[in-house]
């Protein structure tokens, strides 16, 4: 069933995250590297603020490991806005060869998966992989102006403001061991206020293929984390896994970890930033400290556009899986 790549020589050297104030006030708030004071972050547009967050997360990553821009062979990054303006404009200030990647909210594991293959192949020594999303830029692009009085649906997720970056290279405390790229899956759902349900079959397809290809069971991972299915999508994924009796003991969703229930964010966080920030500032430290040894991260993305939504088309989805393993200290 379409290849899963097993890698030997790729490591996550370091990570960094920058999040918005709402995310900073959530349960993981203390873990993020930077919590910006407001979503505009001293700029004069939301778009500039988002790219500033992404650029800052990349800069932080480099500083943590004492690298200069010359030390990197490539940046792989993406976001949700048209023409990837956050990633493109952030890369403008770094002068590192850049490839923009788009997988909607699955962009983070897509960047890591591609970057890992490049490092494993030996063509590249060190790659920056990142992704960003921003609540207001996403609302403005995909929904309504932010000051418009609309009541959000209970199934709707809250696009989070956040950027996360990782350094992939030849040494590090966490190894990238397995990569499965997703197929585009479409179960015919059309409700743009209920993306979790549309994306759950894609997450299931990738998970199922990943496990089947490797002859593994969900229990072989300490944690399986989807990207941004949200509360309802998470339940739908459990239903799908139940169908094939895969079990679902250690399953979680990055989007469910960002906010607490008092924050009126409905079904949870969504956006590229969800998997990027939760991995960078929560899962990565857990792996380094040995609280978990094997993590399967499956970021999920809804691959639809404004135009297809208005033309009443269904919502194709995708999910890319990457397994991270703790390097045991010897």
């Amino acid at each position: 069933m379409n290849k899963t790549f097993t890698l030997k020589n790729v490591y996550v050297e370091n990570t960094a995250s920058v999040v918005g104030p709402t995310e900073g006030a959530g349960p993981l708030g203390d873990l993020f590297d930077v919590v910006i004071p407001d979503d505009i972050y001293g700029e004069n547009s939301w778009e500039k603020a988002e790219r500033k967050m992404l650029l800052e997360s990349m800069g932080l990553c480099m500083n943590k490991s004492n690298y200069q821009t010359e030390d990197f062979d490539m940046i792989l990054a993406g976001d949700l806005l048209g023409q990837l303006i956050s990633a493109n404009f952030a890369a403008r200030d770094l002068l590192i060869p850049f490839v923009g990647v788009f997988g909607a909210c699955s962009t983070f594991t897509l960047s890591i998966g591609l970057g890992s293959l490049l490092v494993e192949s030996g063509f590249m020594n060190r790659v920056l992989a990142g992704a960003s999303s921003h609540h207001e830029t996403a609302e403005k692009t995909f929904r309504f102006p932010t000051e418009l009085g609309v009541q959000r649906k209970a199934t709707a997720t809250w696009t989070m403001s956040g950027a996360g970056t990782v350094i992939l290279g030849g040494v590090g405390p966490v190894r990238v061991s397995e990569v499965t790229f997703g197929r585009v899956v479409d179960y015919g759902l059309k409700d743009a206020n209920h993306l979790g349900a549309a994306m759950a079959p894609a997450a299931f397809d990738t998970l199922n293929r990943h496990l089947t290809n490797l002859g593994k069971k969900p229990e072989d991972y300490d944690l399986i984390a989807t990207g941004d299915l949200g509360s309802v999508g998470h339940i739908m994924l459990k239903h799908l896994m139940g169908d094939k009796s895969l079990g679902s003991g250690n399953l979680t969703d990055c989007g469910l970890l960002i906010y607490d229930t008092r924050q009126d964010t409905h079904a949870g966080a969504s956006g590229c930033g969800a998997s990027a920030c939760v991995f960078s500032s929560h899962f990565f430290p857990l792996l380094v400290k040995g609280h978990i040894n094997r993590l399967l991260l499956i970021a999920t993305g809804a691959l639809f556009g404004q135009t297809t939504a208005q033309q009443k088309e269904s919502i194709p989805s995708i999910a890319h899986a990457v397994c991270f393993e703790r390097v045991s200290d010897q």
Binding site: Q151, V185, D186, Y187, G188, S231, I235
Partner: peptide, 28 residues
């Protein structure tokens, strides 16, 4: 057969409807 028109997809769509959180209409 396209996946989005398959019986499996239709079954899934019904399940999604069932799992939809009930909005407290009265309160709204």
């Amino acid at each position: 057969l396209k996946e989005r028109e398959s019986p499996q997809a239709k079954r899934y769509a019904r399940l999604v409807e069932q799992e939809k959180p009930r909005v407290s209409l009265g309160f709204n």
